[in-house]
Design a protein around this nucleic acid. Structure first.
Lengths: 229, 229
DNA sequence: TCAAAAGTGTTCACCGTACACCCATGG
DNA sequence: CCATGGGTGTACGGTGAACACTTTTGA
């Protein structure tokens, strides 16, 4: 295997972010209308080029920060897309990342300034290049990840109701869940704190708020516990 | 999000292959002793640079073909590694792939010519750059993949015994499995064909050979069946 | 008093797991 | 005849899935 460093082709490397949020019992994506060529005016994931001294994780975080004002967000690599013709202008490979954010936290001004919009998964328009495939893979990935790690909470506010949590999982798995079985399962995990407080916005009766107890979860993991939904 | 294509940094893009084989009830990796700088003489995964007109899948297949003589091999992306300092010579990002091959099939001459060796997982020496991390991620990935898809068979010859299959899963999951429970589970899946033929090499009594019935498996998948081990 | 969402238990089928003995054969 | 690995069944506890009614309260 002769890998000469001389004469090897250098290539543009980009990151693209699939940014998930949750609102009104729906999973949403943060999409931008491109304000530059090619495909100006078309819908696209938000992305950027990898800079000389940053990792792709850095780049993805930078891009996300610029668009949402959010730092310290749950982000993971999905896949790298390398079709020589995926970008018509110049050969570019793209490392796709997904991010899970609490939609309420993002900076509206920045979002508007970048002509970005929250779009429900069901309403995602045609996307440029291979971005639709990126989204598809990201969804599969979060379905898996949320089933084995308590990362779904990243999409919710710190205090949430059992029903919100259920709707979130229904949106992620794209299937209905029986609420009695769901509550039972969550309770058995024993990683939530039930607050005194109620959320009165969703019903007359009101519904109790919960918090994810990260310390408790991590302590349990130390003792061999593994999250499974 | 201003992504000018002008003035963006171009970067070397490599692929590295984590090649798994199975022999003597052990998972093995195909590693090479580098015959070029940097780190000449050190152990390394086999890799190569992405060429102008190929996808990274192409590149990984090319690299694997050159080393093993094998084509049409099960390969999947693991992750892309982008630390600016991961390669001391020049900035290079690497897209890691894992491959599952039937160790018996590979071309010994090519292997020797490239100073490649099969090394049991437990005996993997120190590897250059971030290759150890690549291996770690690849193992996690095959643990997951082999639990939800019948890809373990890629590591076995077309005809194999129930015991071989069990030892394979034990090697992948790195834990012992009860043979009665294992047999029961596999039989329930109903995707193997039991042959008349026996393998007489492992015991006096001999043990029956099986084949994976790919058509049957795919037909079942069409009907909603999902593999789970 | 009614509409709307919250909250809560039981049953049953199936699955995972633990566990031990006989079989066939070559030497 | 014996040593070696091959092959097989059962019992039990736990889990997942189906399923319906009562509670609260604001309007």
């Amino acid at each position: 295997m002769i890998n000469s460093y001389q004469g090897q082709t250098q290539i543009l490397v980009a990151v693209d972010c699939i940014i998930f949020g949750f609102h009104n019992d729906e999973l949403k994506l943060l999409l931008v209308k491109r304000d530059f060529e090619p495909e100006k005016g078309k819908w696209s994931l938000v992305g950027g080029f990898l800079q000389p001294n940053e990792t792709s994780d850095d780049a993805a975080n930078r891009v996300l920060l610029q668009l949402t004002g959010l730092d310290d967000v749950y982000m993971r690599q999905v896949n790298t897309f390398t079709d020589p013709n995926r970008d018509p202008v110049e050969r570019t490979i793209s490392i796709a990342y997904y991010a899970l954010i609490n939609l309420e936290d993002h900076n509206e001004e920045l979002r508007k300034k970048n002509s970005a919009h929250w779009v429900a998964l069901a309403d995602v328009p045609e996307l440029i290049f291979d971005h639709a495939e990126m989204v598809k893979m990201a969804i599969k990935e979060i379905q898996y990840k949320t089933s084995i790690q308590p990362v779904g909470f990243e999409l919710l506010p710190p205090k949430f109701t059992m029903r919100q949590l259920q709707k979130l999982y229904e949106a992620i798995y794209q299937e209905d869940i029986d609420k009695r079985n769901f509550t039972k399962k969550i309770n058995k995990l024993d990683i939530l704190v039930k607050l005194e407080e109620k959320d009165m916005s969703s019903s007359r009766k009101g519904s109790f708020l919960f918090e994810f107890d990260k310390e408790k979860y991590e302590a349990k993991v130390q003792n061999g516990f593994s999250f499974k939904l």
